[in-house]
């Protein structure tokens, strides 16, 4: 897809434009997505999630409810985890966005949190997983920024912000505990 952020330093890639028949007002936006500059023309009502998925080709962000309830579409906007189904594409003009695709270099090792998810079998179908990963990544970064220690109960509470239908959450909790340096309670070694 033409909008996939380029890896050439300083290059600006262009996102796929709206359908010609789209009736709402259009906006020229510039966004930094996973470290790359992206220029795009977006319609007023385009949801950020759809912008990322269908105009920039970053399909790792998933839509599970379009109501902000399920968390599958969670991404980081200026470092804060947000539901990308509850933001409009024109709202992110000038902002910095990070999606699940940015958590590890394409050929590089997985992040600590990603690694813990595979070690603890914290995903089955994997549809909700990008949301959990982004949510926990922001959670860790914010605590570090604030110089705050994360307790196990803070971590447990954070996990309540996303739904998973496959795992029953037990292995997601183990993965989170492993990633944040707590005893995972894993029984498979």
């Amino acid at each position: 897809m033409t909008g996939t952020p380029s890896s050439v330093p300083g290059a600006i890639s262009q996102a796929v434009p709206p359908p010609v028949s789209e009736p709402t007002a259009r906006h020229q936006i510039r966004v930094t997505i996973n470290g790359s500059d992206v220029a795009a023309e977006v319609e007023s009502r385009l949801l950020l999630a759809d912008f990322l998925r269908h105009r920039v080709g970053l399909t790792g962000t998933h839509l599970g409810c379009e109501q902000g309830s399920c968390g599958a579409c969670t991404v980081l906007v200026d470092g804060a985890a947000v539901r990308s189904c509850l933001m409009l594409a024109p709202q992110v003009d000038g902002r910095e966005i990070r999606t699940v695709e940015s958590l590890a270099e394409p050929d590089g090792p997985l992040s600590v949190i990603q690694e813990a998810f595979t070690n603890q079998h914290g995903l089955q179908c994997g549809f909700c997983t990008p949301g959990f990963l982004c949510s926990l990544t922001a959670f860790a970064e914010e605590a570090e920024e604030d110089g705050r220690d994360i307790s196990e109960s803070d971590l447990d509470a954070q996990l309540d912000s996303s739904f998973c239908r496959c795992t029953g959450y037990v292995n997601i909790r183990r993965a989170a505990r492993e990633a944040f340096g707590f005893d995972s309670g894993d029984t498979h070694g």
Binding site: S44, E66, Q67, G68, L86, M87, L88, P90, Q91
Partner: peptide
């Protein structure tokens, strides 16, 4: 007025009516 949108956008996403224009004050 669109501020955070965390109540307004869910309503729009259900097509339960909607204004002609959103004014983002963010």
């Amino acid at each position: 007025i669109l501020a955070g949108g965390q109540s307004l956008i869910p309503i729009l996403n259900l097509r339960l009516g909607g204004p002609e224009r959103l004014i983002d004050i963010g």
